[in-house]
Design a protein around this nucleic acid. Structure first.
Length: 310
DNA sequence: AAATCGTGGCG
DNA sequence: TCGCCAAGATT
């Protein structure tokens, strides 16, 4: 913590009695002021609901693919109550090919909960946000910070990578978020609420645009001069291999093909139409069962299927 | 707590 | 071609 007698003009004399984030905040926030992307959910007219919708869509999905769907979604359902009034299957259909369609179902469920429990307004309270379906620690903090200007550590994959490099001095953060990372994020959070929310957005943007996984942006980085990883000579990641994702041949791929058929269909689809998407009957049946138990598909009598009406 | 859950772009 | 990657949540 800051020594009470620290002379204000001798900050370089004793780094240990200075807030560890002080040297990072200003350059990153200033960089953000100049380089932030003009994204629709950052515009004032987006409102808390726009921010929330964007956060759901951006979970594991690139900005470029979210943009068109976001625009359609907000035009069709400008308020939570508008979405809540629709069948959940319509949310799944409008989700299109963003991936992880359970997010569409959860966003619909969150809209319903907001309509019922919060008078149709996206809650401002972090705990209330966290209680909504599809909202975890990251999204609750992001909505509270971006939509309402509150002070929360916003620890997404971009911020974790920035911290891993700039502060910890390693190439990549751990596979799963650790207590040490949360502690660091709290320690680096500016005291002032407004500064904290700017810091959250700015550190995320830095990870998204400059300090990327592939890492080709150090020459444009506002904190390159004090980046622990760069100063250490940018050592390659060692230790266990980073968790990869498999997809080809998995149930996920089959689920995707099944749901694609149902999204396109506006009348119930017979089993035979679904059978055509995958040759192997056991895996095909398992995938369809999974979709049904997830609530993404509604089975009807006589072997018909459709997106859920309720 | 490790596994699961989509999709497409890029080198 | 194929592995890596992209604003996580849930169980």
């Amino acid at each position: 913590m800051t020594a009470p007698t620290k002379p204000p003009h001798h900050s370089s004399s004793a780094a240990h009695d200075t807030d560890p984030g002080d040297a990072l905040h200003a350059p990153v926030i200033d960089w953000f002021a100049e380089n932030a992307r003009d994204l629709p959910w950052r515009r004032p007219e987006a409102g808390p609901w726009g921010v929330m919708v964007s956060e759901f869509m951006l979970q594991q999905t690139p900005v470029s693919r979210v943009l068109p769907v976001y625009e359609q979604w907000l035009a069709r359902w400008p308020r939570p109550a508008d979405l809540a009034a629709e069948a959940p299957g319509e949310a799944v259909r409008a989700w299109g090919r963003l991936g992880y369609p359970r997010r569409a179902l959860r966003l619909h469920g969150a809209a319903a909960a907001i309509t019922e429990r919060h008078g149709g307004d996206v809650p401002t309270d972090h705990a209330h946000l966290l209680a909504l379906p599809g909202i975890g620690e990251y999204t609750a903090a992001a909505v509270a910070s971006f939509a309402y200007g509150q002070r929360h550590p916003v620890l997404d994959t971009n911020v974790r990578r920035v911290f891993a490099r700039a502060v910890t001095g390693v190439q990549y953060p751990p596979n799963a978020t650790t207590a040490a990372e949360r502690k660091l994020a709290r320690a680096l959070l500016p005291d002032d609420e407004h500064t904290a929310s700017r810091w959250a957005a700015a550190s995320m943007e830095l990870g998204a645009l400059i300090c990327t996984a592939k890492n080709e942006g150090c020459h444009r980085c506002p904190i390159a001069a004090l980046c622990a990883w760069r100063l250490a000579g940018k050592p390659e990641h060692d230790g266990p291999p980073r968790r990869g994702q498999t997809y080809a041949g998995t149930d996920r791929q089959v689920r995707g093909k099944l749901l694609a058929v149902l999204r396109e269909a506006h009348v119930p689809v017979p089993q035979s139409a679904l059978d055509r998407v995958w040759h192997e009957p056991v895996q095909r049946a398992r995938a369809l069962d999974g979709l049904v138990s997830d609530g993404l598909v509604e089975p009807l009598p006589e072997g018909l299927y459709r997106l859920p009406l309720s």
